[in-house]
Design a protein around this nucleic acid. Structure first.
Lengths: 333, 333
DNA sequence: ATCATGAATGGTATGCGTACCATCAAGCAC
DNA sequence: GTGCTTGATGGTACGCATACCATTCATGAT
């Protein structure tokens, strides 16, 4: 593969001059510059970022780690970060962990081995190990989605606790009284926060607040919904902790012959407003993913370019509430 | 950041010995090895792949480029390739092009700059520029999804032409006579091939074969379906060239008050069988994405490890036909 | 004509890890 | 004891691009 030396020989200049043509074109005379550029084209020279990164001590690459790439939510994060990075001249190297915290550390290690300039992490759990690992390498890191109580680190997230209360209040305002929550893995802070918000909103009006913990998957949503909807005095509304759970719950309702929203209302989180969904079905809370990704990228670049070096920042962006077709007022229609 | 020399000093050995501990542990005496390993742990040493890649002339990284990351199809490709690569000790660096062929070249360039050992490309168009660019750098490349008539390159794909005929025959066997095809961008070979298969199957039975060309998006599917379904003598069945188009078409049908499958049958391509879809709705052809990804990765590794160096291979995997809930026999029920 | 100035270009060393060859000591045969 | 083999370890140079300092030459000032 062509090196800068090959180009230099071809153009009868020193390697340094070629390097200057690429990095500070103004410091080279126009004639030389043109000769070098012709040689670059003739030899199809593509710079070697390994050598460059080694010398410059930066790679112009950001690492991004998401937990579940099958989630549209993660896809939007990838797109947002990629776009923001590119606008600043950075490439994104990206890994996914299939929601396995061991794999998360592996992926982080792979990014560090490649000497990315910084990492944006949407972690599996909000335990401190991952962030500690990265910061132990003196590498800047920004966390997406979760608060990280044990780390001094920049975080970009929404207040899901608050959103859960709003969501629940909306259902109660529609007149529903028997409401159940289907949440995710209890080990995941988001699952707990959303359940807590639900419990508080229900308690505030004096209703009991049954919560099921499962996983953030359609299968689990299906199972939980089946259990809840088969009970006597079945709920007339469900609050679900993710779009996947909502999908599974809707399937369970269909199987039990319940129409949505006539017989059962569903509100949900994470109903990512993606380009791929022409006509959203679920009423619920949307996170401003694109904006979160942009802010996270800027936070990271602030650290990389040493524009900021203070304590960890905690940016909380507002969620967006959207009414669609999965909810209806309580009562015989 | 810690280097191999720091570790060497800490353990009172030569850098070479540390390198040996990492690469050929058996060639180092157990005592020395343990001392070095302790130093590595104490200093939190993470090898620098930039230096290693420079010296070894390989990075143990594969590049993967997909066109549209919002498509579940692409997600499955990413997962499949990542898994196959990891099983062979390779990392995947991945880029997406938002279906822009200019961006595709940019992304390829970024991968080459980082000196990936090979590239798997799911291209936007089946024009030869992208493959030429990579091969011009003497880098192995495997193409996913499309035939590349102008390139001598390994390709892994399905026979969509044939699948289109099967799909159409199925609809005709259900008794439908007025059938329309909603395809994608005419510039994309897949859109043309699928339309041709449809036309052939219709012609074989002597029916006219109206084809609409649009884009592989729900919006376009919606527009095309609206146009077709509003015509007098509207079709009783639609063949759509992608799951996105099918989604848009279904939405259009809903708006016109047509029930699926009672008033309108829909069959489609690309209905990726993903983990995220609990209960597939559309009858249609599924591509064995995971297997395609695996084969593509192996093809690439064959080239990288010089296990194969002959002419471009063209692997055609069979599609899978799945009947779901979007089709019904023609006739008053 | 002389010298200072600055632009353009070149030479050398460096970043990190490893290929390759050299060294050294221990073990063994005779 | 001598010479040889083998295993363990070290030293040097290199892969590619660039930081830094040196050199060269033209220009303008005096």
């Amino acid at each position: 593969m062509t090196t800068i030396r090959d180009v230099a020989n071809h153009a009868s200049v020193a390697p340094m001059t070629v390097s200057r043509v690429l990095n500070q074109p103004d410091s080279v005379s126009p004639e030389t510059r043109q000769r070098v550029e012709e040689s670059i084209a003739a030899l199809k020279y593509v710079p070697n970022m390994l050598g460059q990164g080694l010398r410059k001590k930066r790679t112009m690459a950001l690492g991004l780690i998401v937990s579940d790439i099958t989630n549209p939510f993660a896809i939007q994060q990838i797109r947002g970060v990629t776009r923001a990075a590119r606008e600043n001249g950075y490439t994104v190297i990206f890994g996914h962990t299939e929601s396995d915290s061991e794999e998360e550390l592996q992926q982080l290690r792979a990014l560090i081995e490649r000497r990315v300039d910084g990492i944006i992490l949407s972690p599996v759990y909000n335990t401190p190990e991952s962030v500690n690992f990265v910061q132990g390498q003196k590498l800047p890191v920004t966390v997406l989605d979760y608060p990280m109580p044990e780390n001094d680190v920049d975080v970009v997230r929404c207040d899901t606790h608050l959103a859960a209360r709003e969501l629940t209040d909306y259902v109660l305002d529609l007149g529903h009284r028997r409401v159940a929550m289907l949440s995710g893995d209890r080990a995941i802070v988001t699952a707990r926060e959303r359940a807590e918000g639900f419990e508080e909103a229900m308690a505030a009006r004096g209703y009991s607040a049954p919560v099921e913990y499962g996983h953030f998957t359609p299968e689990s949503g299906y199972e939980m919904a089946l259990g809840v909807l088969r009970s006597e005095n079945r709920p007339t509304a469900l609050v679900t902790a993710s779009n996947f759970i909502a999908l599974g719950a809707a399937e369970a309702a269909r199987e039990l012959g319940l129409s949505i929203p006539e017989d059962l209302s569903i509100v949900t989180f994470d109903n990512a407003r993606t380009d791929t969904v022409l006509d959203p079905f679920f009423t619920g809370v949307v996170q401003p993913i694109a904006e979160m990704a942009t802010v996270a990228t800027h936070f990271l670049l602030d650290r990389i370019l040493q524009r900021y070096s203070g304590a960890g920042r905690d940016e909380i962006l507002p969620t967006i509430f959207e009414v669609h077709r999965s909810t209806a007022p309580y009562g015989p229609s």
